[in-house]
Design a protein around this nucleic acid. Structure first.
Lengths: 209, 209
DNA sequence: TGATTCTCGATTATCGATAATCGATTTTTA
DNA sequence: TAAAAATCGATTATCGATAATCGAGAATCA
């Protein structure tokens, strides 16, 4: 029963992470150590450690004596992360295909949910299940490093911004493209799945490759 | 002239990083905060922050109240990192090809050096220039995220361990495989370069894909 | 004896205080 | 008056001290 407690620093990290992702802290906003420490009834040291984690995750930037800010992700960086994501997911499809052959019930369930949301133009729900769909594939690939890099890249390319770019009109089309991947995986055809996945990410994220 | 000072924590991080990579600290070895602090004439706090950086880089592992150890990279994880590396470099070749078309002098220089080392079975020199060769391509891809992930993955898959697996006998063959990539890049043929690169990494790192 | 509890030194986790630095504002100076 | 210097509040960087916890061995007990 490895229920491990976690240090204050880790808890602070989790909280700050959540707040950065849900937009409580906006891009560019300063994170003031003593303010956070006081709010969370702790001291400066654990907060600083938490910020070092987030810095390594590229979610915040720190300059000596100037403090820490939520990183502003530029359009260019968003493109960069989509490029990287496309090959990470391509690899995941190849690796996951054998395991998912004839075993795609969970994937199908998520696909149903995001297709439903797509028809209703419900971005939030769409995003939730789309991400879950992709994460299932990443997990099935059974490569810890791949998964952990993917998680951090997905954080970087805040999904909602990508969806905004795709636009409500194309949401169904975008969802449909996922079904091709799903079919290929169901058949265990990693080659097709990985190609389709890469195309889907590149196409809808506006990459030319 | 952005010569920025760096905090004690960053300096400590750099030092520990160096020592982990050059083997001063062996895998599994404990890093004791107050010991390091005393050695470096600083206090515990900056050392802890440095360890948080290294933790996020997956170079060390920390358990609450048990301390921090240099991570032991298993054979399995080495494979995982090679898989990831193969697609990162594949992408880099695609992206870098236009820029490197007819502009591969630097790459050629590194290739000459590692081929020379390969013939002499000089692992250390080989490793140096092989890494430089790959890094030039990664840099030419002009994607900061890709580069930074690649750097961390390369750290993870300590190169010398990979080379040991390849063995002195095959070093020349391994080096030769790089020349195919080089030729394709020189022609600006990203498709061929990226395929050859992926094959080369997979084949010599013992992956089946 | 074999298992359990207790004790203790080592180490990590956290805190509160102080030093160093920043940026903005005010004051001084030429 | 415009530039330079001094000042000041806010914040980060670092330190030293203390609390919490761990692991290993000693002591205890059945």
């Amino acid at each position: 029963m490895a229920l491990k407690r976690s240090s204050t620093a880790v808890q602070v990290k989790e909280l700050l992470l959540e707040r950065i992702l849900d937009g409580t802290y906006k891009p560019g906003e300063r994170l003031i150590e003593l303010q956070i420490a006081e709010e969370l009834q702790t001291s400066q040291a654990p907060v600083r450690e938490a910020l070092r984690y987030l810095e390594a995750m590229r979610l915040v930037e720190t300059e000596p004596y100037k403090g820490t800010r939520v990183r502003v992700v530029t359009e260019r960086e968003l493109e960069e992360s989509s490029q990287v994501r496309s090959v990470l997911e391509q690899l995941a499809c190849e690796l996951a295909a054998p395991k998912l052959k004839g075993n795609c019930a969970e994937l199908q369930a998520e696909a149903d949910k995001f297709m439903n949301a797509a028809r209703k133009k419900d971005f939030a729900t769409y995003s939730l299940h789309d991400t879950a769909f992709h994460r299932l594939i990443m997990q099935a690939a059974d490569n810890q490093l791949l998964l952990s890099i993917w998680e951090s890249v997905v954080l970087e390319s805040r999904f909602l911004r990508i969806l905004a770019k795709i636009g409500g009109e194309n949401l169904v089309e975008f969802g449909d493209a996922h079904l091709v991947v799903l079919e290929a995986l169901e058949k265990g055809d990693g080659k097709t799945a990985s190609k389709s996945m890469r195309n889907l990410i590149c196409k809808f994220h506006g990459l030319k490759i």
